[in-house]
């Protein structure tokens, strides 16, 4: 039989990036929530009830709702994407909660991610890091036959592990320094591991690390909160890899 619950939600409401924002408490709108709902479907239900009462709904980002696009982004009771390991907020389901639970829902908090409205933030800073060098410079039409580049399965798998990053920014939100090192290092690890990416390793590493600093992200001080929050299980070892690569590239540059 399907279980329902009544919740209390404390949701961060902020009109726009200039507004200071505050928590607002909801109880009436959070009754009879089915355990089968996803977390975002629960918010959909709350929003429908708010609109019917003539109030403004809670703005939050989401798109694919299957854990791959990286759009959804909210901190639930202090944890980016909520309590489930390796799970985005859109994949979290209400069977996690019980009747009477009190939840606090906030946006990603980082200097580089200004709040746009309520739970929505601007993550263009992450794009700026990729734009600085997160690519292999090859023009369309110039590629050799795909099987002419043989890549061992272990190498290909390692690149794929890092490439699984969805760019959601939970690592930044989890880090006490608002560091984007897990994000940047994952992209670097993906590209630098593959033979196709080798010619530009030094240039790419320096460009992306500098872009990360320029975007105002903090540094890594080994809290490893990023790894714990990552919905795609990206390992923090990529950060060490990046730091070594950066040191090496900087020396070569001189």
């Amino acid at each position: 039989m399907s279980r329902t619950m009544n919740l209390t939600l404390n949701v961060w409401r902020q009109k726009d990036s200039k507004d200071s924002g505050e928590f607002e408490k909801y109880t009436e709108e959070c009754k009879d929530i089915s355990e089968h709902m996803s977390f975002l479907e629960m918010l959909d239900v709350v929003n429908e009830r708010l609109i019917e009462k003539g109030k403004l709904p809670i703005a939050f980002d989401s798109d694919c709702r299957e854990g791959i696009c990286g759009t959804c982004s909210m901190v639930i009771n202090g944890r980016p994407h909520g309590p489930w390991k390796k799970t985005t907020a859109c994949q979290l389901h209400m069977r996690e909660y019980k009747d009477g639970d009190v939840l606090y829902i906030e946006p990603w908090r980082a200097k580089s991610f200004p709040v746009l409205q309520d739970l929505m933030v601007d993550r263009e800073a992450l794009d700026s890091i990729v734009q600085a060098g997160g690519y292999i410079s090859t023009n369309c039409g110039s590629a050799p036959d795909a099987n002419s580049i043989q890549i061992g399965k272990e190498i290909s798998d390692a690149a794929m592990d890092a490439a699984a990053c969805i760019g959601c920014g939970a690592c930044v939100a989890a880090c006490p320094n608002s560091s984007a090192m897990l994000f940047t290092a994952a992209k670097l690890s993906h590209m630098n591991t593959l033979p196709q990416g080798k010619p530009e390793v030094a240039k790419r590493t320096i460009a992306m690390v500098e872009a990360m600093d320029k975007a105002g992200f903090g540094n890594c001080s080994n809290h490893l909160e990023c790894e714990a929050a990552c919905p795609k299980d990206i390992k923090a070892t990529v950060i060490a890899e990046m730091n070594r690569g950066y040191a090496k590239a900087s020396l070569l540059k001189r």
Binding site: C140, A143, P144, A146, Q150, K153, D157, A159, M191, L194
Partner: peptide, 22 residues
């Protein structure tokens, strides 16, 4: 056929056999 070549050149980590081929 060109798509697979292009994507591979751009670093798409397609699944590989142990021998290194796609």
């Amino acid at each position: 056929r060109n798509i697979i070549d292009q994507a591979t050149a751009m670093g798409v980590p397609f699944a590989r056999e142990y021998g290194g081929t796609l």
